[in-house]
Design a protein around this nucleic acid. Structure first.
Length: 806
DNA sequence: GCAGTACGGGG
DNA sequence: GTGTACGTACTGC
């Protein structure tokens, strides 16, 4: 018997001799990578009997076929949605028998329902044993022999430790560059030219042509490059191997090339091969090593925190690291590779991408670590989860502490039904379009979470039997919540809010650290996701009435603030859900702050109104339809002179550069007080330049991606028409390729007028199209505020030509 | 207005 | 594998 301290990192399961074993990989506190084998955990699920539990128990105990077997049945008192019942805990021989047994018995007369039959075996184990990845455990184990790259121990006991020591994972980032003679990405045809790896005190670029980069290692062929990559991963033994978009690009690409050379990509610590997901949205996994796709985490969890709108490595790095990619046009790589030119430059570009990925992983690790600790699943699982999934697994993790059995995931028809139901959202006070000066913003801190906690909103407290005469939810006569007993969801919510308040208190006293910041952010993120979760059609704990009650309470509270503000002669100009914009008019900033303090004395429980800030100017635009102020579309000038644009046309790839530039410039002119005439003239001038064709065609190119084979399209969009033209000219086209085109003069629908950029000159583009469909739409509603009509945007010279469009 | 399709990230 | 995205915006008809 041996005893040591251990940080779990990853978990796997395997069936050996018709028994399911669990393999917990990780690192000892001495830094050795090892594997623990658990042989005594049995798969199970829950059955709720209809009336006669003993009869059902006896029948289940005898259930056995060639395919599956029930090995044990236990009776246990558990709660389901806060109501106690007698449940049967049904153990099966193997994990895969669980769904089989469930399918066999679900229509039995004695069975009312089955629960928790779709929780993956490895996740079930982590939750039940309360094993939290990256926490330190004391292990009693016995040395055993298993096929693998690391030492193996059979677990006898796993004990929690008091240690607050933080696990510091070894992280390696990687990135590939591929041969790209066409715009088409094709792993069947095109080789991997370089792989860069970057870690703490480690950097290397592997390539198979002469390269003068000081960190380059030259091998003889692409096949050797892949072997070398394998060897480095095996030698460096990282806990985390990360890439950027590597779930859907780097790893599938490497796998495809390895298959071509019949190289086994046995990166797993048990020599198992890299598992690539098929199609979009699936993950690539390596046994024993956490494959972290930094892009997935950013997209799924940090999406609201990224202001730039794009999740590209370059823009995310700029925003989070203040660093950027090398300024290299990777489109020339194939040509340069063929000519043996600039290869050192590409090696540096490759290395820089892996460095940025590494730096992002290190920077975001505290956040991911906090989520892992709250959710209690591996980083590999956690970092790919969306907010609803995080809430769901958080609840699944908490449920045993409340003796709760979780509801099932909804079936297709339930989802359809849920999707069709709608209810009123937050309160919106529509702004009158215009420009305002000296604006103050208030907002409720964590509005929905504090409502859930303060008003006891939970599936099990909804319309309880014990408080029938309690006051109903404002505006919802038939919805009220228990006043006597705190519900499951409000309990965990209150815990989240209070934990966050404690962390913030520590930050106040001891100063901020990345770790404390990450902890409070993660708590906030999770708490804020509950409301969306309760109203999400795919949720186990879906509750239409709870979701609806939350917004009803929010409307009630914000309307009260607006009323009070108006009474005190603040001018409310806009309000949406949890925020209120006021024009100070004759009032002062101090008076606004005092108003907030007074409001807080009246608010219940954990609810709180905050003074968000002061803005010298704010601009609201009208909607197309009503002419009233559009919600969530405004631009602010802050007291540092910076312009914040909210909710305006997000610029996608298929918008021309000229449209984006014009909109930004017009807003800047208006907010900085240079006057609407100047803004109008600016826009007019752009329109004139488009009409005169003095704007170069580069600024009017529209780019759209081809998603399938040419023959597979039922409807032919402009980019498909162009792709067909390219195909006829002998240019290879296929799925994934970005088609650039310019809408040119001519007759018919847009696809008839689209041309390849190189086939037209600055003179050929259709000014009318760009003026009417690209530039005017983005500026007209802004200028409308000042009474300027579309027609004013047009110079006399072009008036005739364009008048027919209005 | 509906249905079908593309977007994202990567080279 | 006790699994198979997702929410939004545009175009064509």
């Amino acid at each position: 018997m041996v005893n040591f301290n251990f940080y779990p990192v990853d978990i796997n399961q395997k069936v050996v001799d018709n028994k399911a074993f669990l393999y917990l990989y990780g690192r000892t506190d001495k830094g050795e990578q090892i594997c623990l084998v658990e042989k005594d955990f049995q798969p199970y699920f829950w059955v709720l009997p209809k009336e006669n539990p003993d009869e059902l128990k006896a029948k289940l105990e005898k259930l056995q076929t060639d395919e599956f077997k029930v090995v044990k049945v236990e009776t246990e008192k558990k709660k389901h949605l806060e109501v106690e019942h007698e449940f049967l805990k049904v153990f099966t021989d193997l994990p895969k028998s669980v769904p089989k047994v469930r399918n066999e018995i679900k229509y039995w007369d004695l069975v009312k329902d089955c629960f928790e039959y779709d929780i993956l075996f490895t996740r079930r184990y982590l939750i039940d044993k309360n094993i939290i990845p990256f926490n330190l455990y004391n292990i009693e184990a016995e040395k055993t022999v298993e096929k693998g790259k690391v030492e193996c121990f059979e677990v006898k006991e796993i004990k929690t430790t008091d240690s607050d020591s933080n696990f510091e994972p070894d992280i390696i980032a990687f990135d590939i560059e591929t041969y790209n003679p066409t715009a088409l990405i094709d792993p069947k045809e095109n080789a991997i030219l370089m792989i860069a790896l970057y870690g703490k005190d480690y950097k290397k670029i592997i390539t198979w042509k002469k390269n003068d980069h000081e960190d380059a290692e030259i091998v003889d062929s692409e096949a050797e490059l892949i072997e070398k990559f394998k060897k480095i991963v095996a030698d460096k033994k990282p806990d985390i191997l990360c890439g950027y978009f590597s779930d859907e690009f780097d790893f599938p690409y490497i796998k495809a090339r390895a298959d071509k050379y019949r190289i086994k990509l046995d990166l797993g610590l048990d020599y198992s091969e890299l598992k690539t997901g098929r199609g979009a949205s699936t993950s690539c996994t390596i046994a024993g090593i956490c494959h972290l796709d930094v892009y997935r985490f950013i997209r799924s969890v940090l999406r609201t925190a990224i202001k730039g709108g794009s999740f590209s490595l370059d823009s995310v790095s700029k925003e989070l690291l203040g660093a950027q990619k090398e300024d290299v046009d990777v489109n020339n790589l194939a040509t340069d590779w063929d000519n043996d030119t600039n290869l050192e430059m590409y090696a540096q570009y490759n290395l820089q991408d892996s460095k940025l990925t590494y730096d992002l992983a290190v920077k975001l690790f505290p956040n991911m670590n906090e989520l892992v600790k709250m959710i209690g699943l591996t980083l590999s699982d956690t970092h790919r989860m969306g907010l609803s999934q995080l809430v769901e697994w958080f609840l699944l993790k908490q449920a045993p502490d409340f003796n709760e059995i979780a509801p099932n995931r909804p079936k297709r028809d339930t989802i359809t039904e849920r999707r069709s139901q709608t209810y009123t959202g937050g309160f919106v006070f529509e702004p009158t379009p215009g420009i305002y000066f000296n604006v103050v913003i208030f907002d409720f801190r964590s509005l929905y979470p504090t409502i859930v906690a303060s008003h006891n909103i939970s599936v099990g407290t909804l319309n309880c039997d014990c408080c029938e005469d309690a006051e109903p939810t404002p505006g919802l006569e038939n919805i009220r919540f228990c006043k006597r007993k705190k519900g499951f969801i409000p309990s965990v919510m209150e815990d989240l809010i209070e934990r966050r308040m404690r962390v913030k208190e520590i930050i106040k006293q001891k100063g901020e650290s990345p770790f404390l910041y990450a902890r409070q952010m993660s708590l906030k993120l999770l708490a804020n996701s509950f409301y969306g979760y309760l109203g999400f059609f795919g949720a186990r704990y879906y509750s239409f009435d709870c979701a609806q009650a939350i917004t009803a309470y929010s409307r009630h509270h914000i309307k009260k603030v607006i009323e009070d503000a108006n009474k005190e002669n603040f001018k409310v100009i806009y309000s949406d859900t949890d925020s209120i914009f006021l024009e100070l008019d004759k009032k002062t900033k101090d008076e606004a702050i005092k108003f907030v303090d007074k409001q807080n004395q009246d608010l219940p429980g954990l609810m709180e109104l905050e003074y968000e800030g002061f803005y010298p100017a704010a601009l609201f635009v009208p909607t197309k339809a009503s002419g009233a102020g559009a919600k969530k579309r405004y631009a602010l000038l802050d007291d540092k002179g910076k312009i914040n644009i909210k909710g305006f046309e997000t610029v996608r790839r298929n918008t021309s550069i000229i449209a984006k530039e014009t909109q930004e410039k017009v807003l800047k002119i208006l907010l900085s007080g240079e006057g609407d005439d100047k803004a109008l003239n600016y826009a007019k001038n752009i329109i004139k330049e488009l009409d005169d064709h003095t704007i170069p065609k580069e600024k009017v190119i529209i780019k759209t991606q081809l998603s399938k084979e040419l023959g597979a399209y039922e409807s032919v969009g402009p980019h498909v028409a162009i792709a067909e033209k390219m195909h006829k000219k002998g240019i290879p086209v296929g799925p994934g390729m970005v088609i650039s085109y310019v809408v040119c003069k001519g007759k018919g629908v847009i696809r008839d007028k689209a041309k390849l950029p190189e086939e037209c000159s600055d003179e050929d583009y259709d000014s009318e199209y760009y003026i009417n469909n690209q530039v005017i739409p983005v500026v007209e509603r802004i200028l409308e505020i000042f009474g300027h009509k579309k027609e004013e945007l047009l110079d006399k010279g072009s008036q005739d030509k364009l008048s027919k469009f209005f």
